[in-house]
Design a protein around this nucleic acid. Structure first.
Lengths: 150, 150
DNA sequence: CGCTATCATCGGCCTATGCCGATGAATCGA
DNA sequence: TCGATTCATCGGCATAGGCCGATGATAGCG
C-alpha cells in the first residue's frame, strides 16, 4: 500500500518550514505583518528570493498577502501556524541536544552546519492579529531606519 | 541581523518531515515499532533508501533505533513527535484546500501534483507509547523471547 | 565452520531547489 | 504624463537531496 506521495499537503507544509529564510519570515510575521521590502532588508536576501519564499509560504497556506497600495503586506494566515511552531519547539526542547545534523545518507557530514542551536524558534507563545490594517502603516515595525539598501 | 542558519535544528526537524517516505515511516512507527526489512517492504523502496531515511529521522531525533539480534527495531523517539504531527494536521485541516502546490518560485507549476489530499497524516489523534515493549511485538515478525537486548 | 539474513554506508545519477540579476506590471508622487 | 518604488516572475547557475545497486560488517543458523 504504497501511499507515498499521497500526503502532498503535509509534505508541502513541512517543506515550506524546512528553510532558515522561510522560518525567519514566519518569525518576523508572528511579530506583525511586513511588506516585502521590509523582509528583504531584514533577511538580507535579494528581493526576488524573498518574493519566492513568500510565494512558497503562501502556496502552503501559511501566510496571506494583503496588497496595499503598491506594496504588499504579508501576515500569518492563521494562528494554527504559530501553534505548530510552538509544538515544534516543544519537541526540539524535549529532544534537547539530541538534534545533530542531518547528514542525508552518504554525506561527508560536517559542512553546512556548525552553529549552536537554542532560540531556534525563539520568542514563541505569542500570536498577533494577522488582519489588522489600521490604515496605511508607515513604519510598521520598529525597524531602525536602515541605511536604505542602495 | 541575519540569523539565517541559526535555527539549524528546527530546519533539520522540518526537513526530515518534508518527505513522503519519511512521513510514511513515522506513520508506520506510530502504529508500533518495525524492523528495517518491514519498512522496506511496506514502503516499496530499496533497503538502502529506507536505511537512509531512518538515518535522517534518527539524526533529527524523531526516531530511535533498538538493535535486536541482527535486525534493528525503530520506534518514535518520543510522544511529542506525534503531537507535532497532530498539530500539523490541525493546521492542514484548518487551511482546508488552501493548500495547493509549492511551485518554488519559477516553477512551471502543474506537474508533480495532481492527487487529492485528505488523510494526509491520516489516523491522527492517537498517541501510542513508543517505548512499550509488551514483551515481544505481536504481529511484527514475532521475535521469540530474545535473550539479549543489548 | 561456512551460509545467509539484516542493515549501514558508498558511489553515481538526476531532479528539486535556493540564490541572484534582469525584466515587466502596477501604483503613487510631482 | 514621466519617473520612482514595490513586487512577481523568468532565466541561469550551483548544490542539496532522493533513489538505486553494490559492498562490507555483524549476527543467528544448519
Amino acid at each position: 500500500m504504497n501511499r507515498l506521495g499521497a500526503d502532498r499537503s503535509a509534505v508541502l507544509l513541512f517543506h515550506s518550514l524546512a528553510d532558515p529564510a522561510r522560518l525567519a519570515v514566519l518569525r518576523l510575521l508572528a511579530d506583525g505583518e511586513r511588506k516585502v521590502v521590509d523582509l528583504t532588508a531584514e533577511l538580507g536576501l535579494a528581493q526576488s528570493t524573498v518574493s519566492g519564499h513568500l510565494a512558497c509560504l503562501r502556496s502552503a497556506g501559511l501566510v496571506e498577502a494583503h496588497p496595499h497600495g503598491r506594496s504588499t503586506y504579508y501576515a500569518l494566515a492563521r494562528p494554527e501556524v504559530w501553534q505548530l511552531l510552538v509544538a515544534a519547539e516543544h519537541l526540539l526542547d524535549a529532544a534537547g541536544s539530541t538534534v545533530e545534523l542531518c547528514p542525508e545518507h552518504h554525506r561527508p557530514a560536517g559542512m553546512t552546519c556548525g552553529s549552536s542551536i537554542h532560540g531556534c524558534l525563539a520568542h514563541a507563545e505569542r500570536v498577533r492579529e494577522p488582519h489588522e490594517h489600521p490604515g496605511v502603516r508607515p513604519g510598521v515595525t520598529a525597524v531602525p531606519a536602515h541605511p536604505g539598501r542602495r
